[in-house]
Each structure stands twice: as structure tokens, then as C-alpha cells.
Nucleic acid binder design. Structure first.
Lengths: 369, 369
DNA sequence: TTTACCTTTGTGTGCGTACACAATAAGAAT
DNA sequence: ATTCTTATTGTGTACGCACACAAAGGTAAA
């Protein structure tokens, strides 16, 4: 009859007894010792003779013992306090999604008795980071999640964490030599490089484009933004060296100020019809274009804030590059559970995908957990 | 000093006793009954008086009891057999990634005593699906994952599953009126619409483009492919009505045959420099272009098979649309665990993101779990 | 030989839940 | 009143693991 089918069995890559997993009891019987001794070996506690330790370890390896993490977590019956240190932000901002993801993960892993307390600092006030960090440390948390936006203050704090043996996870941006347990965020340089390729497609044959920049408290954006710009310019240098890239600095203090800056710029350069921002506030430009009925202007930006989504939908923004902020938050909590409770091995550097969003695939972006 | 920070506490949205979660024991004490009675209420088993049932239910709601799923799974000590029914495929094909994702999930959830057995059918041989399904049913699985590629045979099988009360999950493509427990896959129409927008950008001002199609055993591709095409044509109709779209049917029987078809086509249409495929075999075109040194040809396709990735890297393919096949596999297993073991609520329709991949963001696509 | 002390090993209980079984109460039948 | 039946409720054990404590064995000192 039909020879056109067959089957295959996957039973998790764990050795099995008749049916069901190897337990500590099985190891004990095989090695001729009690479960207590096996337990001591597993947790490398003292009080085991060399001979039985070796015997147990051999059987452990032979049977490829994998502990039941849930039973283990249940028995240990510990509570875990996680603390999080984030830039102060208002509703609708990027960091809110990160927090939402963390909240989701806390819910999912609530059976592990975890709790999360978040502390905020104003990234534009010198010393605020360390002040918030001090408050945080009074909690004596079991692990910390933070965004290393203020590099040198972060270094100071990280040393404290290391002294206390508290593991810490970086989120959004990375400082590799501070050696976090893990990092979740985008490869900013590559995302700028990618953005450049797409923008050049959008720009068609235009000879000039514009980069809108955001200046906060005199600082030229975050490290993330700077790295995106670097990637962007690298692509343009490699592929379109004779393209003219203008830069326009905005300040987002009073909307009027930005508006007149934009007015001045486009009065001077009426032919420029393509631009990009490397911060999350492309809606400022989008809303300006809508107000001034410049429907020909092609525009790109970062992050799916509600106002940016609105711009995508009304066509003033063509593309948004997203970086799964919710997933970053979710993963950072998950990572701590895996490390502290389930004792799984953690991958240190975790780049988020560089997602290109248009009005067409927008809906499905949020669908993915 | 610094007023620029504050804190916030998230402790999972679960009511708590002093510290730690509400347990069955707590409910029992509050309601003035034994844990056995609470257990009977929780599982709506018989043998509880109306009065105590009401009392328990009231306390349950008051304290917002959330069972510890891991303790529950541990105590119930059941084994779960999952079965999977997929199209027969060779190494490097799309379905292999789906299987990889399922394998990963089986590993992650191995503490729940789950096992997975996969059955294959030749989607081009009539009756093979149901023959494989019969084999599958001999396992008497607790749940089934399948790709409903052969619509009418799927209908027959689904009726059997419903009669046996076996939950089933659709993967890759959906047939909503067959009412699966869940569906994981892409919105094919929208992805075609999205593809059209990007392709038009790539095509610049070209007046003609080409769609390469794959004919298997006389069938014009899967439902997925057809829906992508529909979305594609819809976009073109709405936005670029006077664009000429050529279609070229290929057969992938002997490479020579396809090659001469391509030769003929491009001899007849030497000016066409932009094309797309809606199946996963864009590498056939990419490799042809490389062989014929047509570096000007702009090309798009679907799915990150190794040969497609190679084409992305050597520049013969510009964009690939991906659909997270690994995540589809992973999610389908996870969904069954959530439903059967953890008793969580399942979302029925789960569209995967429509991801646009270039050589720039390729690496990070695979990084996301 | 007895006692003390330390090393090594085994046993018991608890984590929160599920389920089998025992116990109790209430009512009906004798 | 006694026995039987049935409806209701409580208790005990198990799941796999962690950890406290008890027990056993060995060595050295008194």
C-alpha cells in the first residue's frame, strides 16, 4: 500500500528507566548508597568519603542524571527578590514595554516565589543612578537587572554587586567588560547599518537625506543612538559615498522650538525628501510632516511607541525598526530564574532581532509573545 | 539631595499570605474544611455538600487562589504522549526547523514527562496522509500536532480526533473551521502584501517584474503559497496597477529543465531585473543568477533554508521573508503543555511575525530563542 | 575498657498538590 | 436499639528533591 510515511521518536535526550526519568533514588540504589549521600555529591557538600563520591559520580554520569527542576524548586522553598534599575520614564515610552515584559515573566514564574522591585533614576542628573542604586542595595536582592546607560556610574555599582556576589543582567545596551551574567539588547551598530540599507532603498535616487537627532540636557543621545549612527554612516561610506547626509539637531524642550528648527531646515533644503531618526521620537517628525502636508517625505525611525505606530498607520512614517523591548524584559527575568532556580547554563550575549516594521506586518509583531 | 528616583513593587498579581503564596491548606482553614474537600471542589469532583462547596468557592475567590502548577504536575505524576503529523521532507528543508523547535521544547519541558512521536506523509500521494494518521492513532496520543496541508484528508482525520477527545494543534497553515486548539503560523495573505511593498521598493522604476512558481506533481504549490500570491497581487492592484507581472512556472524535477525554462524566459524578457518566489526555493533562482553572472537582478523569496542563506550572503538574493519555523514548533509543544498539564488558557490563533531578513540582520534572527 | 570525638552514612520530614482510602454522620430499614 | 446504606468529610501517602537530624563506624585519648 502506502510506503510514503514513517515515524520517528523523540523522548527528550535523557536516559530513562523502564519509563519515566532517573531519580536520585535510582542513582542511590545503583551506587549502593543512600539518597542522602547522592544529594551531598550533587550539591558538592562535605561529609562524603572519596570512595563513595567517585562511585556516585560514575553512576550519575552513566545514567545521565537530570534533576527534576520543579521538584527541586519546590523542595528548596526559597524566595527570590529581584531588583531592577531603569531610567525614569513616562507613559508610552520605550522602557514601559520593557517593564511590561518583566511583569509578564514575574507572572509566569510566580510559582517559583519570585518578586521584583524596580528603582528609577533620572539619566540626565549626575549621581542619580548611584543614589537609586544605594536604595536598591538596601533590599539585599538576590539578583539585579539594569540598563547601563550611565557608563561610569554603572562601573562603580557593578563593583559593589560583584563584592556582594549578586548576579546582574544588562538590558538594552551592553558594556561587555563589566561582565554581566547576561545581556539582552540589540546590536546597535548593525541595526544602523541595516537601517541605512533600507533608507537608501526608500530614498530612490535622492542625492541628499537628513538625520534628525535628539539633544537632551546637552547630551547627544544614548550610546545606543550613537552606535546606530555609526553603523548608518559606515554603510553609506561603503555603498554610497557621494550621498550627502545632513544633520538636524532637535531638543524636544518646547515643541515650538523644534518646529521652527524644522521650518528653517526645510526652507533651506526644500528638495530633501527622506530622513531618519536614531532615537525613538520619530513621531515628532511624522507629526510635523502631517501638519505641513508633506506626504512625499519618506521617513524612518526606531521603536514602536504608540505615537510612532499612529504615524505608521497614517503613512507619515514608512518604516520602524523595532527591538522587542517586551521580550528583553521577559528574557531578563527568565534568565535569572534559569540561573538561580533551575541552575541552567546562561548564554551571556543575547542580541535581539532587528525587525523592520511597516503598517503591513505591524499587527503580527505584537502577536509574538 | 536627589529626588530624581523612586521605586515600584511588582510581586506577581497574586494575593499573598504573610509572604508566599496561598495554598490549598490556607483555603481549607479559612473555609473550615479539610484539604480533601477543597481538592474536590477544585477538580469539581463529586461528594461535596452544597454548603461547603459554596463556602470553599467563596474563599477561593476571595484569596484569588492560584495553584502551584509545578507541585500539581509533580503530584499527578502522569505521562503525556504527543504525536505529530508532518509532510515528508529532506534535510535542509523548512520542516526540519519546525521539528528542531519541537525537539527543543520537548527538552525544556522534559520534567513534565512528555514524549513526542512524529509521523510523516508524502503530501503529493493521495491517501498517504490518512494512512499515516491511522498509524498515529494506534499510539493513542494525548494530543496531536499537524500541518493541515491536505485539506480534505485533514477534515476526515480531525473528526476522528474530535470523537476521541484528543486536542490538536495546527502548524504552518490554518483551516479555522476545523477548530483546532491552537494555530501557529503566518498570515500568508498579509505576508504577500508586505512582500509586494518591499519588492516594489527594490524594483525602483521597473515596469515589469516576474513571479517564479513551483509546480509539484501537477499541483500549484500549497495553500500558503497561493495566499501569499493573492496578497501580493492585491497590493500591486491597489498601488501599482500598471506594473506588468510575468509568471514563470518551474518544476524542480531535473535542474536542467528549470534552467532551460529560465534561459528561454530571460531571452524573451532581457529587461526584467526583479523577481520573487512565494515558495522556499528561491535558491534555485539565486544560484541560476550567480551562474549566469546577473548581478543586477533583484530577488526575494521565503524561508531561511541554508541554501537561501548562502544566496543572501553572496548577494544573489536581496531579501528573505521568514516566519520563525522553529518558534512555531516550539510554541506548538509549549501550547500542549500549557493546556494539558498547566491548565492555562490557550489563545487559538497565533500569527507569527512577518520578518524581513537581509544579510545585515540575519545573524540576530537566529539568536532569538 | 570506657569515653569522647569526628567522619561518614542513613532516615525522616516537608515543599504543595492529587488521590485512594478511612472515618464520620445522618438517615432508613430492620 | 441495632444494623445497613449512603452522603460527606478527613487523613495518609506519594510525587522528586533538599535539608536537618539521627545513627553508625572509626580513631584516639583517658
Amino acid at each position: 500500500m502506502y510506503q510514503k510515511y514513517f515515524k520517528k521518536k523523540i523522548k527528550s535526550e535523557v536516559m530513562e528507566r523502564q519509563q519515566g526519568r532517573i531519580r536520585i533514588k535510582d542513582i542511590a540504589r545503583q551506587a549502593g548508597v543512600s539518597v542522602g549521600t547522592v544529594d551531598r555529591v550533587l550539591h558538592s557538600r562535605s561529609g562524603v568519603s572519596e570512595s563513595s563520591r567517585l562511585r556516585v559520580e560514575k553512576v550519575l554520569e552513566q545514567l545521565n542524571y537530570q534533576p527534576n527542576m520543579y521538584a527541586s524548586a519546590l523542595a528548596s522553598n526559597k524566595k527570590y527578590r529581584f531588583a531592577c534599575l531603569l531610567p525614569l520614564h513616562t507613559a508610552g515610552e520605550y522602557w514601559e514595554s520593557v517593564e511590561e515584559g518583566m511583569g509578564q515573566a514575574v507572572g509566569v514564574y510566580s510559582d517559583f516565589n519570585i518578586s521584583l522591585e524596580t528603582f528609577y533614576y533620572d539619566q540626565y542628573v549626575s549621581g542619580a543612578f548611584l543614589a537609586a542604586a544605594k536604595l536598591l542595595m538596601e533590599l539585599s536582592p538576590d539578583a539585579v537587572i539594569l540598563s547601563p546607560t550611565v557608563e561610569q556610574e554603572t562601573s562603580v555599582f557593578v563593583v559593589q554587586l560583584q563584592e556582594c556576589g549578586i548576579p546582574y543582567v544588562f538590558i538594552d545596551s551592553n558594556i561587555p567588560n563589566l561582565n554581566p551574567l547576561a545581556f539582552y539588547g540589540q546590536h546597535a551598530g548593525r541595526s544602523g547599518y541595516f537601517a541605512a540599507r533600507i533608507l537608501k532603498l526608500l530614498a530612490h535616487d535622492s542625492k541628499e537625506i537628513v538625520v534628525f537627532r535628539q539633544i537632551n540636557e546637552g547630551r547627544l543621545g544614548s550610546n545606543q543612538q550613537l552606535h546606530r549612527e555609526e553603523g548608518f554612516y559606515q554603510y553609506m561610506k561603503e555603498h554610497h559615498e557621494n550621498l550627502t547626509v545632513h544633520e538636524l539637531n532637535l531638543y524636544a524642550k518646547q515643541p515650538d522650538e523644534d518646529e521652527s528648527l524644522l521650518d528653517d531646515f526645510f526652507a533651506k533644503h526644500p528638495d530633501i525628501n527622506c530622513g531618519i531618526t536614531f532615537n525613538s521620537k520619530v513621531y515628532i517628525i511624522g507629526e510635523y510632516m502631517r501638519k505641513n502636508r508633506r506626504e512625499d517625505f519618506r521617513l524612518m525611525g526606531y521603536d514602536l511607541l504608540q505615537r510612532n505606530v499612529d504615524c505608521l498607520k497614517n503613512g507619515t512614517v514608512d518604516f520602524i525598526i523595532a527591538q522587542q523591548p517586551m521580550l528583553q524584559g521577559y528574557n531578563s527575568i527568565e534568565c535569572l530564574c534559569n540561573h538561580l532556580i533551575l541552575k541552567k547554563k546562561i548564554k551571556q550575549c543575547n542580541y535581539m532581532p532587528i525587525d523592520l516594521i511597516t503598517v503591513d506586518n505591524l499587527d503580527f509583531y505584537f502577536d509574538a509573545q
